[in-house]
């Protein structure tokens, strides 16, 4: 391991100041992703700024929004009564991620910032445009079973691996970021980026900014909601495909609907066209099938992940069906 300096702070202000001072500094929260990246030589910060003591762990209802601090642990959020009652989709998605041990230390901010699990990204002996721009993409023409089918670029076909973020994309969350001068807000769906020509950038957080909290508007998707994750083993595996589905049904009609997918794109993939189709329609299997079909517009396989072209729509249908069946 390469030597680094470890700094600890308990205020947002000093955290930002420390970050601003040093281009090669990084925040460390739960460390469940960053430490692995350091061990593999993918990331080599000279300074680690431990932000775990910054008081950003709140989970509360303020007006018509639920506020979640960036340093709340994945477990704290998933097991919070307010979240379970008002945002069950988020609790389900969190519980589908990683393992209990990891969730206990992983934070909301860290989860959003976690990097892809593409094997080439982790192996410094292999080409990877995300790790080393211009070196090529190992996954194209290689092992791409886990990779993206939507909005890929010739530079990178990686997926964002988070489960939590899929639910947050569906729930219209807003991310609050703090910079050296001011705070700003950004829609969750705009937080993560597509690979495009800049696969090295996962999201739109600026180098001198910090995620401080999420704001999630209340909704009526508290009953007919389901997060369905398809994976190679029943726990402790990343999604092949996952779907966050929330429905509000009144008088047999779908009055509100949210759909987002994980494991299919460089960012959590919101299915807006499918939502628009379903809104106002009856919650029938035929409509679910049609919505799933619409979701697949523009999807493209890379060989080993071709199965996702079938698994993805199937999972949408199943997630919607299960969501509907809840009472």
């Amino acid at each position: 391991m390469i030597n680094f300096q470890y700094l600890r702070t308990s205020s947002k202000k000093s955290a930002l100041a420390l970050l601003l001072k040093d281009k090669n500094a990084k925040f460390i929260a739960g460390g469940t992703n960053l430490i692995d990246l350091m061990k593999r030589g993918v990331s080599a910060p000279e300074k680690l700024i431990d932000i775990n003591h910054v008081p950003l762990k709140q989970i509360e209802l303020v007006g018509d929004k639920i506020i979640i601090g960036a340093l709340a642990s994945n477990t704290a959020v998933a097991e919070n009564e307010l979240i379970k009652e008002k945002l069950p989709l988020l609790a389900m998605a969190l519980n589908a991620g990683a393992s209990a041990q990891l969730r206990n230390v992983a934070t909301v901010g860290g989860n959003m910032m976690q990097r892809t699990r593409c094997g080439y990204f982790y192996d410094t002996e292999m080409p990877c445009n995300k790790r080393k721009p211009g070196s090529g993409c190992g996954a194209i023409g290689g092992f791409n079973r886990m990779h993206a089918i939507f909005a890929t670029s010739d530079n990178c076909i990686a997926v964002h691996p988070s489960d939590m973020c899929v639910a947050l994309a569906a729930l219209d969350a807003v991310v609050v970021l703090a910079g050296p001068k001011a705070e700003r807000k950004i829609l969750f769906k705009d937080f993560h980026r597509l690979a495009g020509d800049t696969p090295q950038l996962d999201n739109n957080l600026k180098a001198d900014e910090m995620i401080i909290r999420l704001e999630i508007p209340l909704n009526n998707l508290t009953v007919n909601a389901h997060y369905l994750k398809v994976r190679d083993r029943a726990s402790y595996a990343f999604a092949l495909v996952s779907v966050a589905a929330g429905l509000e049904i009144s008088n047999h009609k779908i009055t509100d609907v949210r759909l987002a997918m994980g494991g299919v794109a460089h960012k959590p993939w919101r299915l807006t066209a499918s939502e628009n189709f379903l809104r106002g329609k009856e919650a029938t299997i035929e409509n679910f099938e049609q919505a799933a079909k619409l979701a697949m517009t523009g999807a493209k396989g890379f060989g080993e992940n071709d199965f996702k072209l079938q698994m993805a729509p199937n999972t949408i249908i199943e997630a919607l069906t299960i969501a509907k069946s809840k009472a």
Binding site: S99, R117, G119, D232, R233, A234, S235, Y236, A237, F238
Partner: peptide
Amino acid sequence: FADYHVPVNAD
């Protein structure tokens, strides 16, 4: 151990 899948309890 994240990517080489030995069965876990849930399996």
